[in-house]
């Protein structure tokens, strides 16, 4: 029987979106049955108009070409700039885009589950999300994770 991998994806930023999609696509390539449960801000990763961003604000660990004090980081456009720089860097280094990894996950049979409670909470509509996803709640996740070989909260 195939190994099972259960993931909770709770972050919707560019850097927060990579780990669940990288691990899920790779696990699927290794023959795992994989389910990702998207909750809270992680739901952004299921959007049709996927456009995750990264911000240095509140993240003192983010490498910057020059030091940018927090008070400057609130200036409009800096988040856009940081995202643009990160995306350029990812491309230069031959890292797949989030969209590409999500596509591979879907093609390789990873089940993408939207947490119904948070879908309601944020007034998301089914049409906001890509096709082929399912929805479920805490018990749905726990049923699968109770049999999983690996479970991660990201």
């Amino acid at each position: 029987m195939a190994k099972k991998f259960a993931i909770i994806a709770s972050k919707g930023t560019l850097d927060g979106g990579y780990p669940p999609f990288i691990l899920a696509s790779t696990a699927a390539a290794l023959g795992y049955e994989v389910k990702i449960f998207f909750t809270f801000y992680g739901l952004q990763l299921l959007r049709k108009d996927l456009n995750p961003k990264v911000s240095p604000l509140g993240n003192p660990a983010m490498p910057m070409p020059i030091p940018v004090p927090s008070i400057i980081q609130v200036i409009p456009g800096l988040e856009w700039f940081a995202t643009w720089m990160m995306k350029r860097k990812l491309k230069q280094k031959g890292v797949a885009s989030i969209e590409e990894l999500r596509e591979i996950c879907i093609d390789s049979g990873v089940e993408l589950i939207a947490c119904q409670m948070t879908v309601d909470l944020f007034d998301f509509k089914q049409t906001d999300f890509i096709d082929g996803i399912t929805s479920g709640g805490a018990a749905t996740f726990l049923e699968f994770s109770s049999e999983a070989d690996t479970t991660l909260y990201i």
Partner: peptide, 13 residues
């Protein structure tokens, strides 16, 4: 060549 993790594994698969 030129591709980074996890693409070599995914392409091989």
């Amino acid at each position: 060549s030129g591709l980074n993790c996890p693409l070599p594994v995914l392409k091989a698969r």
